[in-house]
Design a binder for these strands. Structure first.
Lengths: 168, 168
DNA sequence: TTAAACTTTCAAAAATAAATGAAAATTAAA
DNA sequence: TTTAATTTTCATTTATTTTTGAAAGTTTAA
């Protein structure tokens, strides 16, 4: 396979994966494009490579910056802004994990703890099932939360190394 | 908070979480409803509780069965079908992990291994960056894959217990 | 200043995903 | 069988998400 073809395949695959995980397809594609670009790209270049509009490119790049996955660069003598993607995969994974934890897991943990307070008739099967399900999910969510917190602090080799040491 | 209100909050939260993770909101809500129901429900009951159409209820329930999260039950003397959700949270997490691994991670691993074969000019920065990014993502994906495989085999207490023993 | 280069915004359009509901298909009791 | 109950299908409709593109805003060089 040629580089050009591989690049297209990579962008396509990353976009598909993103959309399956609730991330806008175009955003994932722009990220993929920047990931395989040695140099920072301009908005124009992103627009041209992916055939997307200026507005779309601009908003998507801004979102990627908000996620901490891309940074703006300025080149001396150049008026335009350049966009460069963080290349360290483990850092990317941590950024995504951190952001989604903050946006999604933390709110869910809050709601679950409220739902743990629901009072009712201990004889009522509906109440008992509710209680048990909420308690179980709460326990799992807290374990996931603790694991993520560990991951956010860890180096990749340490994190996976330690996991596999245990489960070998 | 009352049971009725808590139930609504739970269904709403589960639906929102689902949609953030690429799962149809209604499907997550039906799952939530069944999770807190001590008894198996009929299609009619699901339709009424969530105010959704027959077609939607039918398709959603079928999808949940495909995911292995819900099973059909038949009651003697009853013509209708009843739907019951697996209540063991760890089993649910494993089912979801297994299914998404199969549907999403496995195809990505396959593409990444193809992309590892891309040939090009070692002096070309575009080629070098492509190679490095693909190799790094491949490594991470394989580690995630191994961790998932471990999780699929493990008991919850063992899995998290072992992780926290290491990271204490 | 001013004017060209560049970035951002956002209402409208297009694309995509999900839901409806009535008809067709299936099932099982009479 | 026949028929009534129940489930499934799927063309249409509705809702949601994403993209466009032109206008407004901003920046910087002359």
């Amino acid at each position: 396979m040629e580089l050009a073809e591989g690049k297209l395949k990579f962008i396509e695959a990353w976009g598909k994966l993103g959309s399956e995980w609730g991330i806008n397809r175009t955003m994932a594609q722009v990220h993929a494009l920047l990931l395989v670009s040695p140099e920072a790209l301009t908005t124009e270049e992103v627009m041209a490579e992916l055939s997307i509009s200026r507005g779309n490119a601009n908003m998507t790049l801004r979102d990627l910056i908000d996620w901490g996955l891309v940074e703006k660069q300025h080149k001396t003598g150049e008026r335009k802004e350049f966009f460069y993607a963080e290349k360290d995969t483990w850092a990317i994974a941590r950024r995504v994990a951190e952001e989604r934890k903050k946006r999604e897991l933390d709110p869910v943990l809050k709601i679950l703890s409220q739902l743990s307070e629901v009072k009712g008739d201990e004889k009522d099967p509906a109440y008992k099932t509710f209680k048990t399900s909420v308690a179980d999910i709460n326990k799992l969510a807290k374990n996931v939360n603790k694991t993520l917190e560990t991951m956010l602090k860890a180096e990749e080799s340490w994190f996976f190394g330690s996991i596999f040491k245990i489960f070998k």
